[in-house]
Computed example of a mutant assay.
Amino acid sequence: MTIPIKQITLHKLNMRLKNPFRTSFGTLQDKEFFIIEVMDDDGNRGFGESVAFTSPWYTEETVKTNQHMIEDFLIPILQKNAIYHPDEVSELFSSIRKNNMAKSTVEGAIWDLYAKRKNIPLAQALGGTKSEIDVGISIGIQPTTKDLLRTIDRRLKEGYKRIKLKIKPGHDIDVLREVRAHFPNLPIMADANSAYTLEDVEHLKQLDELDLMMIEQPLGHDDIVDHAKLQAELKTPICLDESINSFADARKAVQLSSCKVINLKIGRVGGLTEAKLIHDYCLNHEVAVWCGGMLEAGVGRAHNIALTTLAGFTLPGDTAGSSNYWEQDIIQPEVTVENGIIKVPHAPGIGYEVDEAILNKFTVDVKTFHF
């Protein structure tokens, strides 16, 4: 039975983060993104969220390129083709190279719609089995080490299971040593966002004394080979993020021993279907996976929760509560964390209702496409 799409609405939003988010690339506070709404003949609505940033600092995609791809290529493909299952969407989009975040935005809405039509939670539709998930939190670069220590202490009191810290040259080993001295048993991840090269091997070897869970993406954003060389020199597990944009990338990284962990971001790999394939491969090859965050609002956060219910997600993800990022989120109820745990919703689809009033409050543009 087909998924009868009646119309697609593209909502462009602009929301201000509660706190500036600093990485080795720069600072972000105002986030532009899209909420895509797919409606069927019965009035059921599925929602997806774009995760590209305004500037191409994380991948080559941006808010504007997402809009171009969704409006001019992806929606027209859906208008010309019948869909029976969300897994078919990635194949339909395969003629379009890359543009994974644009593809994921659309595919995610169709997955949500599919689950609602089946009257089952999205987690169940994906094959997930967990009723709750463990979560950690990512902390951007703070003005001072004292500020960082205070922030970590506050987050630990809120119950988060692990802390991810952003590092860059000149702001790395000494800071991590200070954190480890204050929190000797804290599960710590260090995220480098491709800030280093193989010339830094000896420097990065100092990480091994700090008992880190992992160092994330220390080398080039598109590299697999050099990471294999670095991993051979380090005891600290390397986690790949930006390098993994597809199942093929994940397979090659595992075969080359480029990493021991993979950060799975739905938008980066092109959607839930591809994320499931990567998850299954890693599970079979004993490579740990966890779900990374992209400063999502409620819809994207809900998709992350559903994905994390799959068996291979054994490490806490970055899916913190809504209130950590937004004064108001666009869903009801908002995502909440208690003692480092999010309870997986049981309602059909993503399990949260999009609040129309709040959605409209932050919407700066709307376009509707009829089928």
Rank of each mutant, 00 (worst) to 15 (best):
M15F: 03
M39F: 02
N19H: 06
K64N: 11
D41S: 05
D72Y: 13
S55N: 12
E32A: 13
P76R: 01
T27D: 11
D72C: 07
D42Y: 09
T59G: 01
M69N: 03
N66W: 01
D40I: 00
P20W: 07
K12P: 10
F34V: 09
P20R: 11
R22P: 00
N66R: 03
S24M: 01
E37I: 04
K18V: 01
T62Y: 14
N44T: 00
K64W: 12
F25I: 15
S55T: 14
F25M: 02
H11T: 06
V51G: 11
E32K: 09
D40P: 02
Q29L: 05
I70K: 08
I70Q: 08
S55D: 10
F73A: 13
Y58S: 05
S24G: 02
T23W: 02
E49K: 14
M69Q: 08
Y58I: 07
K64L: 08
P20M: 08
D42S: 07
I35H: 10
S24E: 01
M39W: 03
G46A: 03
T59E: 04
Q29N: 09
G43P: 01
Y58C: 01
E71V: 12
D30C: 11
H68R: 12
L13D: 03
I75A: 08
G26P: 05
W57Q: 05
K64G: 15
P20D: 05
N14W: 05
T27E: 09
F21M: 08
E49V: 07
K64C: 09
I36Y: 07
G43I: 01
P20I: 04
D72F: 14
W57L: 07
F25G: 06
F53Y: 12
T65M: 09
E61F: 09
N66G: 06
H68N: 06
Q29A: 14
M39Y: 06
R16Q: 13
E61H: 04
D41Q: 10
E32C: 05
